[in-house]
Amino acid sequence: MRSFTYERATDAVAAARAVAQRPGAKFLAGGTNLLDLMKLEIETPTHLVDVQDLGFDKIEKTGDGGLRIGALVTNTDLAADTRVRRDYGVLSRAILAGASGQLRNKASTAGNLLQRTRCPYFYDTNMACNKRKPGDGCAAIGGYSRQLGVIGVSSSCIATFPGDMAVAMRVLDAVIETVDAGGQRRSIPIADFHRLWGDHPEQDTSLRAGELITAVVLPKPLGGQHFYEKVRDRASYAYALVSVAAVIQRDGSGRVAFGGVAPKPWRVEEAEALLPQGAEAVTARAFHGATPTKDNAFKLPLATRALAAVLAQAGTPAQKKG
């Protein structure tokens, strides 16, 4: 861990300015990911701006019947919120499928969105990694890739976004609200929030320097049945090999996004239109153009079967055809 300076912000715009003005500065919220990465020298910030006192810790109704989730609401509180459990079950289930009770008590909503990949080569600073060090190369390509991405990856990086919460938020079409150093506010649809790696895997998201997440807004409830199907080798405390977040309506239509497969929660709206035709049709479309490795090719049939499990539970017309 490198030496760094630390300040505790009391104002959002000032916090954004503090990070924007200082090369190598970062925000600190729950710290469940950042501090681990600092100990390993994967993250080497020069300055930390602790945002925990900024008060973004409430879940409030929005004017159009949705919910505004403060950036600092803990994963535990968000998953337990009665409105979330009632109207956005997929989100509550996704959060509870991730990490552990202790981590969820500390981890924030914004921090969960910003968690970095779990590619083992990213975690070993002796290995080449474009995400850690732009232009370094990618040791994961041609290496051990069982957990890594099958679609949306690039010749620079085959890592995945590892989270669960964001996959549910993608299905819900959440919007991420930010403020920057100039006091400018911005609303970013979650579809545009996480980036495909392309030639710049060091950039995980579309946030600009110093831009601070203040809230995540959920549009008004979708109704339907909510599912979060997470597949992993052990029963708890493991990242998804594949996960499926889905909201299925009575008529068999619905929305679906996949986790553990791509640099971002993977949702293809055109594929959702095929839900009434069953899982195979949906995943054939959603994963068109996939580039799996020998180690992780199983993720494609696994995604189909995990979605089939969801549709079977939903008991919609899709299940009978699929």
Binding site: P120, M127, G142, G143, Q147, D233, A235, A238, Y239
Partner: peptide, 21 residues
């Protein structure tokens, strides 16, 4: 990793052992 000669999953997040569940 037979190219670099190491056990690449060298932490308890990637070398999984059973949990209570």
């Amino acid at each position: 990793d037979t190219r670099f000669g190491l056990f690449i999953n060298h932490d308890l997040a990637t070398y999984e052992v059973p949990v209570h569940a």
